[in-house]
Structures are given as C-alpha cells and as structure tokens.
Design a protein around this nucleic acid. Structure first.
Lengths: 338, 338
DNA sequence: CTGAAAGCGCTTACAG
DNA sequence: CTGAAAGCGCTTACAG
C-alpha cells in the first residue's frame, strides 16, 4: 500500500478539484452521487488514508483525549485504572477519538508540572483518573481545556466528576451485614486519603445510625498513609468484631489472609466484605462479597460528558454518581443473635 | 491560560518574524542568545503551547505509536498486556512520542479489518502486542509502516519481534525441578495456540532430553483452545506426576486450586511452577516459583527498535530475546530419589 | 543574525 | 454540482 496518497492525487487522476474529493470523501453535499462513488472507489484503490493532522490543524481539534493516571495507582498489582482506561479507549472509538494515556509521575505531581500532552496540544480534553493532591487539582483547573475527574472528586474544585456511588454502595453492604445478624462491625480504611474511602465510610456510618448502632473509634482501622499509596498493616482490634467492611477488595484480601494466618476462619469466625469487585475479590477462598463497580457505565458517562464539553464549551454536569451493585459471594456468614 | 497563542502572536509583540520565534523555541541556530531568551520568556508569559498538529503536517510525522492488543488478552482478570502498554507509554516519553492503545476487536481480527489508527494516519508505527491469527499477520505486513511484534513472533512473517526468552526460561525452570529430584514432570499448555506456549514447551523438552528423561504424551496437558482464548479445565493424569510446568501463572494458579480441591497438598504431594511472575503468582498459597518476565526491558527494546525504524526506514532487528529470571518461591518441594 | 516565501494536506466560505 | 482562493500554524530552504 502506498502511504503518501493525498486528495490532490485522487483529484488529478479524475480531473476534478481537491475540494470535490474532500466533499465526496466526507459525504458532504455538493457532489453528484455518481462522482462521489467514483472518487470513493478510486480512493480505495489508491490506498488513500486520511490525514488527520491536516484536519486537526484546520479545525484546531486533535481528536485525542488525555487520560491522566497518578503513578501510585499503576503498580504491578493494580490494574483497576488500566481497565477503566481501556474501557475509555473503547468508548472514544464511537466518536472518532483516541485516548492517550499519561502516567502522572510522583515528581511531576509534587512539583506541579502539568502533563506534557497539555503543552504539546495533543488533546482536546482531559480525564483525570484517580485522586491527586489538592495543589495539583488547583493546577489542573488553570488549564483552559474541558476536563473531568473520574473515580474521585473534590468538594472545593469546581470540576465535573463521575464517581461510583460509594456512599450508597457501602450503606447497602452494611445494611446487608446487619440483616445477617451482625452488630459488631468495623470499617477498614484511612478516612483522610481519598474521597472514595471517606464516602464509603460515611455510607457505613449511615447504616449504623439507622440501626442505632454506635460508631466505635477503635473499630475504624487505617489501612494506608494519607497519600493513599502505601498499604500499612491493619491492626486487628481485640475483641474482634464479627464483621469488617473494607474500603476495597485488595485491603479485604489482605485482611482475610491476616485473619487466616492468625487462626481465624472466614466467614465462620468473622465476616469480611470489600468494594470494587476487582481481581482480588475472586482470588481468595472464601471469595469476597463486595460491591461491583460499573466500569463501563463510568467510562461511558465520562466520555459522553467530555464530548459535550468539547462541542458545547461551558456545559456543566456536576458530580455524577454511577450506581454499583452488591455481588454476593462466600465471605459473609449469617449469625444468630444471642 | 490563553490557549490560542501562536508563534506569530509572539513574533508580533516582539517585532520579529515567526521564523525567528520558531528557531528560538526549538533551540536552533540563527538567533542571538539574547533574543532567544526574550522570546522564550515571553512565550512562557503568554502561555504559549506548541501546536503539534502543525508540525505533524509539515513533517508528516504524528509522534504517536499505535499499540494494538487483541481483545482476548484484555479481560477483567488479564492485566499483563495493559502493564506492558503502560511501560511502553513511559518509554515513549523520552522520545517525545505518545502511545495510542487500540484494542483489536474479535470481529475486526476475523474480518481482517486494520485498526482505525492506520486509516486515520494517527501513528508513525505499530506495536502488535499479543499473538494474532496468521491471516491477520499477513494483513499487518501489508501496512507500509514500521511495526514490531511484542511478546510473540511468527516464523513465516518477516517482521521484527521482541519476546521473552521463553525457551531458555522454561528450560532453566525444568532443570531446577530436576535438580530438586523430580523425574516425573508434566507440561501444561496447548502447543498449538501461541508461539510462547510452544517455545516454553520446547525448553521443557530440551531439559528432559538433556537429562535423558522420556517425553510422555499423556503428560502434555492442554489448557485452552487453539485460539488461545478460552481456558479449558485441565484433566489431571493418573498417576500424578511429581511436578507440573505450567505455561503461565494463571494456569498454574488454576491447577493449584484444582489440586487442593482434590485433596492434594502443594508442594508436599506435587510441585507446580508457572511463568510470567504476574499477579497470579503471589495471590495463592503457596506462592509460585515462576519465571519473571522483564517487562521494562521488553518495552525498552521494542521502543528503541521502532524509533530506529522510523528514523532509518529499512532497519531490521530480527527476533530479539529478552532474558527473564527465575523467581524462587514456595511451590516446589525437594524430593528424595528412592 | 534575521526574515520573505513556499508548502505540508486539508476545509471553509464563496462564486460561478 | 463544481472549483479557485484563503488559511490553519508551523518549518525548511534560501537570500540578505
């Protein structure tokens, strides 16, 4: 296949102008159907490939969306955001867009360097996937490009976001535990690291409130540092509660292993639930009861929104919640009330 | 920040020409140091951002590399290739390039549709990450763009590739098992699905040959269909061998679960080794002895090669092998020879 | 050291 | 229905 065929080449062969070729290839009015067909056929035969760069320059659009993921969410054992990115790529296809992944390095986040894709005008908009520091959020706001937060939000930043309904998911999950007879329920997660962990905690707390169960400080267990990165070893409280609501499957996974290592049986001695329904939920015995995050819907909503922002600057969507659903597995045991 | 600042705007403010601005911003000769500084400073103040699209059109380069991954390697539980893609993105940074992910849908592979990024001239080269069908390989060859195969190869296709040294890795791993006293060693993998599985098998076989151990057909166990997609249940041979060489960690993981479910202890009754050192290797008790694939080195080599192909069309690299390394964990037991 | 001219490949008015 | 002209923002010779 020849690669350097232009509209002009096609036009010359047919003795028409390149304007006509452009119209024909873009299915615009102003060309007879017959000529249109001839042009399209010849374009195919000559191996014509559209030059997006030329269109880009003319229109000022790149047809790319930048997907920025902070480095700390991309370790070898973390694939959740990569899967979301993959789903974003798929969604973008329908719009003729492409997703460019940018891993935000720790240093760049600390030193407040915007992604290179911004300075290179490589993208028409940004999706920030995963919580970043407050100063970085402010920096991001200074970019005059459509942008969305995905899977986190910030109360103070006036940026549209798409998040799982963390609050409601954790609320329902805790309700379920209570319905199974549990009264002594701990929460595992650092309340000061991400909005997700905080909101899941509040959902848990709401459920306790509604059932008039006390919130016990010694049953709120931190699992990581404030940056949300390093997982710390969770200290088991004594006496043990009968159930743990973990802020994510990975932490639930670690907790179950720890419980088992200390001689407890799950769920017989102690029930554990997670959140996310990711790979960790099924790679352990017992498999975890958890909240399934609707990755497809999140990607779809984020892309729909950012596309509207590109075509209609100034569109606002606020904070959009995407419902998850409880996945019932084997890590919860019904207990009889004394 | 204003987004529509051009070189011309900067030039006008300074009373110079846009050529001079271009030279200054690109650090080319032909501008006095003093003027260069003034231009750079003003560019910063005015929030100038480079317009890659214009450069692209002028040079005919997109500064993008397409990374094509067949859909069947991207399921929710498969993150290996996504991590490689991520590493590719990082490597590309140094070259001022970006990686565009394209998931190759099943239908497009079957109906022999080239990725949209090709027709849109979105990329200067392709990395095909993960084995595709023979007809698709031929189709890919018809594209007149630099391309590399990553993590697989095809004997008949004359395309450069970067692969883990599967042969040598499996050979060493099998040697290790034999050194631990094992003589009855099975291999798990469909020999007709991918080049990796085949080569790993041959490494296993070479080790057997060298130690004058017979290759027993009933100990070569298929784990998937010929397309490499669907994992089938592995049938355990009776009597059980003392060790299994699995073609990847995921299959080893499944096998260990099956063995345990049937009442065997691993590694006491039976040793199991995997390949890849991915998330499956450590998410099970016992953790798996396996071959660690050097993702960084693979990405680095692939990117170096494709960059050379772009700057020097016609460069050839052949099949480049990247060495892995055995990771010793707890799934192998030394057995005493009778 | 500095700049006028031409061109990369397309699309958008506008004129016929 | 068809096309000549202008322009998107840059870079590459080339001339001064």
């Amino acid at each position: 296949m020849k690669s350097n065929v232009t509209m002009r080449d096609i036009a010359d062969k047919l003795g028409v102008s390149s304007v006509t070729v452009s119209k024909a290839l873009n299915d615009k009015d102003g060309v007879s159907d017959e000529l249109k067909e001839r042009i399209k056929t010849l374009a195919g035969e000559m191996g014509y490939r559209f030059n997006t760069a030329a269109k880009s320059m003319k229109e000022g659009l790149t047809y790319n969306i930048g997907v920025v993921i902070p480095e700390r969410f991309t370790g070898p054992s973390q694939s959740f955001y990569l899967h979301i990115y993959q789903q974003i790529s798929r969604e973008l296809e329908q719009y003729g867009y492409y997703g460019i992944l940018h891993i935000l390095h720790r240093e760049d986040e600390e030193q407040l360097n915007l992604p290179r894709i911004y300075y290179d005008r490589k993208v028409d908009g940004f999706i920030l996937l995963g919580q970043v520091s407050k100063p970085y959020i402010e920096l991001v706001q200074s970019m005059d490009l459509p942008k969305m937060f995905l899977d986190f939000y910030d109360e103070h930043a006036d940026i549209d976001s798409v998040v799982t309904d963390n609050f409601y998911g954790a609320y329902e999950l805790t309700n379920y535990l209570i319905a199974q007879g549990h009264r002594d329920i701990a929460y595992v997660g650092n309340l000061y690291s991400t909005s997700s962990i905080q909101d899941r905690f509040l959902g848990y707390y709401k459920s306790l409130l509604e059932h008039r169960l006390p919130l016990r400080n010694e049953w709120v267990l931190s699992d990581r540092d404030d940056e949300g990165a390093v997982y710390v070893d969770v200290e088991l409280p004594q006496p043990l509660p009968t159930a743990f609501v973990c802020n994510c499957d990975q932490v639930a996974y670690n907790l179950v292993q720890k419980l088992i290592a200390q001689g407890y049986r799950v769920p017989e001695d102690c029930s554990v639930v997670g959140f996310d329904n990711d790979v960790y939920a099924t790679l352990i015995v017992p498999q975890l009861t958890t909240v399934g995050v609707d990755i497809e819907q999140m990607a779809r909503t984020a892309i729909e929104s950012i596309m509207k922002k590109i075509s209609h600057p100034g569109s606002r969507f606020g904070r959009v919640l995407v419902q998850g659903h409880i996945v019932y597995r084997d890590s919860v045991q019904r207990i009889e009330r004394p």
